[in-house]
Design a protein around this nucleic acid. Structure first.
Length: 277
DNA sequence: AACCAGGTTATAA
DNA sequence: TTATAACCTGGT
């Protein structure tokens, strides 16, 4: 068990904002499955109480995962200056963080996410993990880690289809082929400047602008992206009358305005607007 | 019984 | 270059 100074994180909004597919509530706290371990986390007044199936480096890993060492105050100050609407919603987004999740897991998970809802995405990922991932017993419950790359290489399109992936199955198979044929593909993505990383990801069939942006934002800590989904498109952009309802215009508008933190900005929009209803 | 869900591709103008 | 249909599946 480790105690970590909580600072200003809000676990509920961070974990249930749709950026993470492997989290669940349990009595007293949350269970989330990371790359290599299962984590129980409880929120107290000043501390996060964390237990894990693997407590090695746990403090550092949690701090990285929840992005606790980043100065969100300065990001928020910057974003607040850009427009009145942003300034207003930031107040409601205190404690919201961009999770730093495993790049490979994000790569696969967000291909699955296209034209799909969170509930079903989570279910599919759960099934795949149960089938091909390492089993972890933690607090007398069984959990399954997200499968490793090399295990995925042996999975066929038919296998994936049987888990309900539909036409996304062939996208995944193809994406895995790209990883297999390009050594250190994901490391290279990490080292590319964002616009080039987007371009590179989007060469892969099944990865468009939205999915590529999500992969970069949640798996690679690239905050200067602006993943626009239909929900944001319909519900949020009405607050910005000056822009056209056209994906490219919106994206350019946002990235010009919110610069290095447009990814944080859109998460705030999404979060605050969704919490209204 | 259509229609949609936190998209993308292929095809046509 | 921009617009529109089709796509797997599960839910309303």
């Amino acid at each position: 068990m480790v105690k970590i100074l909580k600072k200003d994180i809000d676990l509920e909004s961070t974990l249930f904002s749709g950026q993470c597919f492997r989290v669940s509530k349990c009595k007293e706290g949350y269970i989330t499955i990371l790359k290599d371990r299962v984590v129980f986390i409880k929120e107290e007044d000043k501390y996060l109480i964390v237990e894990s199936s693997n407590e090695e480096n746990l403090k550092e890993i949690i701090e990285e995962y929840f992005d606790l060492n980043r100065d969100y105050d300065s990001i928020n100050s910057f974003l607040s200056l850009q427009d009145a609407y942003m300034k207003e919603i930031i107040k409601k987004c205190k404690g919201f963080k961009i999770l730093k999740q495993d790049p490979f897991e994000m790569f696969i998970s967000y291909i699955i996410s296209q034209n799909n809802n969170v509930k079903r995405i989570s279910k599919i990922i759960e099934i795949i993990s149960k089938k091909y991932g390492e089993k972890i017993v933690f607090k007398e419950e069984e959990y399954y880690l997200f499968p490793k790359e090399e295990v995925f290489f042996n999975v066929s399109e038919e296998n994936l289809k049987s888990f309900g992936l539909g036409y996304r199955a062939k996208y995944i198979i193809n994406a895995l082929k790209v990883l297999k044929e390009n050594n250190n593909f994901l490391n290279k993505i990490q080292n590319l400047e964002t616009s080039l990383a987007l371009k590179e990801l989007m060469k892969i069939k099944g990865i468009g602008l939205k999915v590529a942006s999500c992969i970069l934002l949640f798996g690679f800590e690239k905050f200067d992206v602006f993943p626009i989904d239909t929900w944001v498109n319909q519900n949020i952009l009405k607050n910005y009358k000056e822009i056209k309802v056209n994906y490219k215009d919106i994206k350019e508008f946002a990235e010009k305005k919110y610069k290095n933190f447009s990814g944080v900005a859109i998460q705030y929009m999404f979060h605050s607007e969704r919490n209204k209803s």
